[in-house]
């Protein structure tokens, strides 16, 4: 019988009762080993055994962008210069929101296997989903930036806005993930409803068209749609900085209204998501 080696003191463990928001994030950080593992497993799981592996994270959106640019470029491209670049810059930011919604819905329900068996801070699961989305987003964005010279764009000073845009969009997504993850535990229909809603949302966001050109009711809806402004955060430095037409109000820098709306939206959605999540995180286990 081998003697059990002396164990170093562990730093934390399960606890009962409520903790503050700060403590909660500290706890997630102390369980970061598990967090990375869950995130990494999710990134890996989909592509296990495939030859190109994680490259598919980039290839799938890029191929979609390519085909959209080709088809809609022929239909709608006459009024919009450099239509491929226009559509790609729109899709890349909508894409991260879209997949955050769909994977966010499942982030607690698929964690049932952990929730029922071991103690883990619940916030780990939406956080892992966010990490996965962030990694995918970063990969896709990097690929788009690399491809931009092919589309006639050059690196520009305007790109310095991108990191801020990424943070705002991911903060918004984090809130959405926490919100839908919690709701989906109680109302599992949400997962299916999301698919339909996102399809509608996609067309109500000026991704494959420009609001100014369509005008009318669509433009009004576009202006009420927060994602329009998130799109602008990315489209301004990557597209509007080079593609100019006479009557466009856009420049290479996002305007004040865009900043105001995106910052407010991100903060509010994040806080609402966090509050709802914290209200229910200790109760979801009973609804599984």
């Amino acid at each position: 019988m081998t003697e059990l080696a002396a164990a170093p003191q562990r730093r934390f463990g399960p606890h009962q009762g409520a903790i503050t928001v700060v403590q909660e994030f500290q706890e997630v950080w102390s369980y970061r080993g598990v967090l990375w593992n869950i995130a990494w497993t999710q990134i890996h799981a989909g592509y296990r055994g495939s030859f190109l592996g994680i490259l598919w994270t980039v290839l799938i959106p890029l191929s979609m962008m390519g085909i959209y640019a080709f088809v809609f470029g022929s239909i709608l491209g006459r009024d919009i210069p450099n239509f491929a670049l226009f559509i790609i810059t729109g899709m890349v930011s909508f894409g991260v929101f879209q997949s955050s919604c769909t994977t966010g819905c499942r982030s607690l329900t698929t964690a049932e296997i952990y929730l029922r068996r071991v103690y883990l801070p619940k916030l780990i699961f939406p956080s892992a989903t966010l990490i996965v989305q962030a990694v995918n987003f970063a990969c896709t964005l990097a690929a788009v930036l690399l491809l931009m010279p092919l589309l006639g764009a050059r690196p520009s000073i305007h790109w310095i806005v991108l990191p801020v845009g990424i943070v705002l969009l991911l903060l918004f997504c984090y809130g959405v993930i926490m919100l839908v993850a919690t709701i989906n535990v109680y109302i599992r229909d949400l997962e299916h409803a999301t698919t339909a809603l996102l399809r509608m949302w996609y067309f109500l966001t000026p991704i494959i068209y420009s609001s100014e050109h369509v005008g009318g009711k669509v433009e009004i809806v576009n202006n009420l749609n927060p994602l329009t402004y998130y799109l602008d955060l990315f489209r301004s430095p990557m597209y509007y900085n080079i593609a100019r037409t006479d009557n466009w109000p856009h420049s290479g820098w996002p305007d004040g209204q865009t900043w105001l709306i995106t910052i407010t939206c991100s903060v509010v959605v994040f806080l609402v998501g966090l509050i709802v999540f914290r209200l229910f995180e200790n109760k979801v286990i009973y609804a599984m």
């Binding site: 009962q16 071991v118 103690y119 200790n282 286990i285």
Partner: peptide, 17 residues
């Protein structure tokens, strides 16, 4: 083990588990 949160009553854990 902390898997179920306490509804009524009190559970205090003073060590690792």
């Amino acid at each position: 083990a902390g898997i179920y949160q306490v509804q009524t009553g009190r559970v205090t854990l003073g060590g690792s588990i």
